[in-house]
Design a protein around this nucleic acid. Structure first.
Lengths: 137, 137
DNA sequence: TTTTTATTTGAATAATTGTTCAAATATAAT
DNA sequence: ATTATATTTGAACAATTATTCAAATAAAAA
């Protein structure tokens, strides 16, 4: 009646062979760090506010913290925190002019990918397309 | 001394013009739903376990819940919960054979994009490349 | 120098989310 | 029918994370 692991396996059934399991374990171990980093990058894009900031900066070359807060109708501090994360992952850069700090999109592959997705979103409202996208759900 | 919003603006400084702000507000409002959906998709990919599952399925065409749990050294239930999310967003499909349920990657653009990224990760361990990627941080 | 504006920072709070646990379901084997 | 295996499910818990708040910093204007 007690649950016993056979050969350290969680299950017994007609699944992958033991050598195959071992191989996959090895490959996961080899790339965990990279997968972890990649997931951190996706996590930022998975934060609604951060993604909105990136969207805004894809439309307007540069924007100050205060204006973004105004546009997104959010606390300046909340925007600033998200900008810091975005900055850490090199998705945005900033430039101070006087007391204002202007943020803009950094040129890199991920941002280019996002821009492509944003373009698809915009097409919906330009009549080119009219079905909801990314709603695979 | 008290903080007053001038014309409903959070700040006053030398920023974007009021019409520009209004335009951006409008565009954000138009696409909030799509951005929200897109961020939900990224959020899944931003979940380490879910991304690992996708990585495994990019190597092995199909895998059962139990084997994935064994490979990732995690609770079967945890894997199952993530698979459900992945399934809701149509990133994976499943097929039951006997009591075992096999999951595999669904063919769609996002998964193709991920496969490309996983290939880059793998190159690191094949000697083609040897610097850490996605660590823009 | 003092005040005003713009932004950042860190701690506290609020909200969300991933994992575990126990129980339920489903299929196959005995 | 009963038992064993594979998976799902929902509630509870633990952990993480986004936002708010108050205070600090930085630059410019008065």
């Amino acid at each position: 009646m007690k649950k016993v692991k056979v050969n350290g396996k969680t299950c017994i059934g007609p699944t992958q062979s033991q050598p195959e399991i071992i191989l996959l374990k090895k490959r996961i171990k080899q790339s965990t760090d990279e997968i972890k980093n990649l997931s951190l990058l996706f996590k930022i894009a998975g934060t609604e506010t951060a993604l909105k900031i990136l969207y805004l900066l894809s439309i307007e070359r540069e924007l100050c913290v205060c204006d973004m807060a105004e546009i997104l109708e959010m606390n300046v501090s909340a925007i600033s925190h998200q900008l810091k994360r975005l900055s850490l992952f090199r998705l945005v850069t900033s430039e101070r002019r006087g007391r204002t700090i202007f943020y803009s999109l950094r040129k890199n592959q991920f941002n280019e990918y996002l821009k492509g997705l944003f373009a698809i979103i915009d097409e919906v409202y330009e009549g080119t397309n009219n079905s909801s996208i990314f709603t695979t759900k």
